[in-house]
Computed example of a mutant assay.
Amino acid sequence: MDERLRQLAAQARILGLMHDQSLSPTIRSILRQADAKARLLSDDELGTICSASNVNAENLQRLQSKTPQIVTSAKSQLLREDPGLVLPGGALYPEPRAEACWRDCWHFLRVTIYAVAAGRPVFTHPPGVKGLRDLYLELGVPISSMAQAVGFLKADAISDYTSYASPSDTSLLGDALLHLEQMIQQLNQRSSSGAEVLL
């Protein structure tokens, strides 16, 4: 990765909860550390954050454990919808390009789970969103396809969570994923100048 891409990637941190002064310093610190390492929350961390938001930590941990399957399902649905994406000439060809897309989906779900744990459905940080848009433009990421994948991710995560979480926690997840989906869709709107930014 060249230096410009490294700088753009560093700026493309969409989580803004560590700047939310209505959250306790302990919670902001947990989120900052987890996001810096791009990792899922531990059971203890989920317990600490959820105890302040009254979100059921055990149910959220159950959802978090299914992150790989949810991303795989979204991937399968996207490729069923548009199998040409990963073929030569497609927007997600060659394979490392597709893998980067699925990895981003995993990270999007990861930070959404942070947001649900904290009880904050609006969780993005405008400078980080701008950084993501700049990075996607630089790399020629197919934003419409990414938005579509996030839509599948949203539907699958909500469907799973609904089967064991409370209506209020499920509603919180739905709102957070909708916020994420709208953010991705707006990247496309903001980066268009009469033409969609596809590869």
Rank of each mutant, 00 (worst) to 15 (best):
A57M: 06
S53L: 10
A91T: 01
A147S: 15
T48I: 15
D44G: 03
G119P: 10
Q182W: 12
Y136L: 04
S29Q: 15
M183D: 00
A165V: 05
K130P: 01
V86H: 00
T112A: 13
S191E: 11
L172G: 04
I49S: 10
M1P: 11
E181N: 10
T162R: 15
P167D: 12
A98S: 11
D175G: 07
L5Q: 10
Q11P: 02
M1Y: 10
H107N: 14
E138Y: 14
P121Y: 03
C105G: 14
Y114S: 02
D169N: 13
V122D: 14
A118P: 07
L92A: 07
G90M: 04
K66D: 01
R6F: 12
S163M: 08
K37F: 03
V122Q: 15
T124V: 11
L41Q: 02
Y161A: 03
A115M: 11
L5W: 01
L5A: 11
L60S: 09
D82L: 05
L135Y: 07
G119E: 08
L85V: 08
S191M: 10
A157W: 00
L135Q: 07
L46H: 11
P68I: 00
L172S: 02
G140V: 02
Y161D: 00
S53N: 11
H107W: 08
R62I: 03
L40T: 09
T67P: 00
K66I: 01
H107E: 09
A98F: 13
E196A: 15
L23S: 07
D104R: 13
R97A: 02
G194R: 10
I158V: 15
H125C: 02
L153S: 00
L187V: 05
Q33I: 06
A100F: 00
S22V: 06
